[in-house]
Simulated scan of single mutants.
Amino acid sequence: MGYADSKYAESVKLFDITNIKNTVLLLLFVLFSKQLRERVEYFDTMMLFYFLSVTWRIAFNDFGIFAARIATFFGIVEVILVPTLLLVCRQKLVTVLGIILYAFLTLYMNLYVKEGRFPYELAIF
């Protein structure tokens, strides 16, 4: 069995929940880029990597594993960029609650929404 016949050759849907999440975050970073550029030293470099991640995943959505793995490599800066949103919001409580909500939604999405993850169940339940 070759790669083309395996389950890894499946395409990623264009409106996949991960693509929507990444696009919304990218739009937020673009919206606040002026303020973040002044406060975060390597914001432009991290933004370039995140932009490459989002566009790579969308551009190569026909090659599922290829698109996702390379996009994950570029998208590692997301864990640094998301907390930088604290720097642009005046109401820190709202931003902290937003980041906590984002973390729980990402966890929920990875555990229950995404296809192919059902063999992994929580050990406590």
Rank of each mutant, 00 (worst) to 15 (best):
R39Q: 15
I58T: 11
T72R: 06
L26F: 07
L122H: 04
V54H: 00
L93E: 14
T55P: 07
V79F: 14
S53D: 04
D5N: 13
N19H: 01
I65V: 15
M46S: 06
K34F: 15
Q91A: 12
I58G: 03
M46G: 11
F15L: 15
L85R: 04
R39L: 15
L14D: 08
F73Y: 12
V30P: 02
R90I: 09
L105Y: 05
R39W: 08
L101Q: 03
R69N: 15
L93I: 13
L81W: 00
N110M: 11
L36C: 11
V12Y: 01
Y102I: 05
K92T: 15
R37I: 11
E41D: 15
T72Y: 08
V54G: 01
E38Q: 13
D5L: 12
Y50F: 15
M1Y: 07
L28I: 09
P83Y: 06
K21W: 01
D44G: 09
L31C: 12
G2P: 11
L14H: 01
T95D: 04
L27Q: 03
L31A: 13
V82N: 04
D62E: 14
E10I: 07
A9Y: 01
G64Y: 02
Y50E: 03
K92D: 12
V88N: 06
F43K: 01
F43C: 05
T72I: 09
Y8H: 08
V94N: 09
T45N: 07
E10Q: 13
F49Q: 09
R90G: 15
F43G: 02
A4D: 13
V12Q: 05
I17S: 10
L14Y: 07
V88P: 05
L101F: 11
T84H: 03
A4N: 11
V113A: 08
L81N: 00
S33C: 13
N19W: 00
S33Q: 13
R90A: 13
E41L: 11
V40C: 07
W56F: 14
V113K: 03
N22F: 01
F60Y: 12
T45Y: 11
K13H: 08
T23Y: 00
F15D: 14
Y112E: 12
L97M: 13
L105S: 08
I70A: 05
R90T: 13
E38L: 13
G75I: 05
D62P: 06
L107I: 14
G98I: 06
E115Y: 06
S33H: 09
T18I: 14
R117C: 10
Y8C: 09
F118W: 08
L25V: 01
E78N: 03
F15A: 11
A103E: 06
T55F: 12
L87Y: 08
T106P: 02
T84E: 05
T55L: 14
L14P: 00
